[in-house]
């Protein structure tokens, strides 16, 4: 275990309607065993001791699964480590003397609420447009009544692993949510349970995505690189195929 001295440049913004700016802070004795958020906890304890308001940032599970944490760290969504959320990023990935720039997700669809906290409710509204199977409780057949080939179930699970953090949007220069939508559309398209609503689902979700102000996909694959859950770009390809098929059928 060793310790680091760091310079942090942190985005501070009092509220949605006020302007923000970077503040510079110095931290010493940061253990390499700490997680990135624990490093921010230490910063906040220091700030409180100096009568300065702590930095607001979203987090909850601190296990890489709830999708609540975010942060652009030196321009990278969730920081430098591959397939890792900010809460699972550890300080051993930084060096003594480093300067770290910390910003909120930046996207038209994600307005800043305060400091590093943004409003991601647009993602919920996209799911509300059709990211589910319309089945009321109590009417389901026996769970083994419909067989699902293991390979399909596995692929559906790969897509379903999306944690909804919004890193794909933040990493994309167009702030596109195609990877997020592609993951849900793929999961459902791969499973027999998702088939009946296959066409309406993709059309409605894509329409909602556009309404919410997410941008277009121009295939730069930044989303895949930033995704902490390893959601693959092939989900966007499948989304495009599903969309085309659905749009053609709708036109007929």
């Amino acid at each position: 275990m060793s310790s680091l001295k760091l310079t942090l440049k942190v985005w501070r913004q009092p509220s949605r309607d006020e302007a923000g700016q970077f503040h510079t802070y110095h931290l010493e004795d940061v253990s390499t065993e700490m997680s990135f958020l624990e490093m921010l906890d230490v910063l906040n304890e220091n700030l409180i001791a100096q009568d300065e308001e702590p930095v607001a940032f979203d987090h909850d599970c601190r296990e890489g699964i709830c999708g609540m944490c975010s942060l652009m760290i030196n321009g990278q969504a969730h920081g430098p480590d591959n397939e890792t959320t900010t809460c699972q990023l550890h300080m051993r990935h930084f060096r003594d003397g480093d300067t770290i720039v910390i910003e909120p997700w930046r996207a038209k669809a994600f307005p800043v609420i305060r400091d590093l906290v943004v409003d991601r409710s647009a993602l919920d509204r996209v799911i509300a447009a059709g990211g589910y199977v319309s089945v009321n409780c109590g009417s389901a057949p026996d769970a083994n009544a419909v067989l699902v080939p293991k390979t399909d179930a596995d692929k559906a699970m790969d897509a379903a692993a999306c944690i909804g953090c919004g890193a794909c949007v933040a990493a994309c220069k167009n702030a596109s949510a195609m990877l997020f939508v592609g993951a849900k559309v793929s999961q459902m398209a791969l499973l027999p349970q998702g088939k009946p609503e296959r066409a309406s689902r993709v059309l409605n979700m894509v329409a909602r995505m556009d309404e919410e102000g997410f941008g277009n996909c121009t295939n730069t694959a930044e989303c895949e690189a930033a995704c902490p859950a390893g959601i693959s770009l092939s989900n966007i390809a499948r989304l495009n195929r599903e969309y085309l098929k659905a749009a053609l059928t709708a036109a007929n």
Binding site: V133, G138, P141, A153, M157, L191
Partner: peptide, 23 residues
């Protein structure tokens, strides 16, 4: 408990499966 599994499968929860397609 059994109704829960039925409900979740119907919702598209991708539970682990055997090669034959069963849960």
């Amino acid at each position: 408990s059994n109704l829960i599994i039925d409900q979740c499968v119907a919702q598209g929860v991708p539970f682990a499966r055997e090669y034959g397609g069963l849960l």
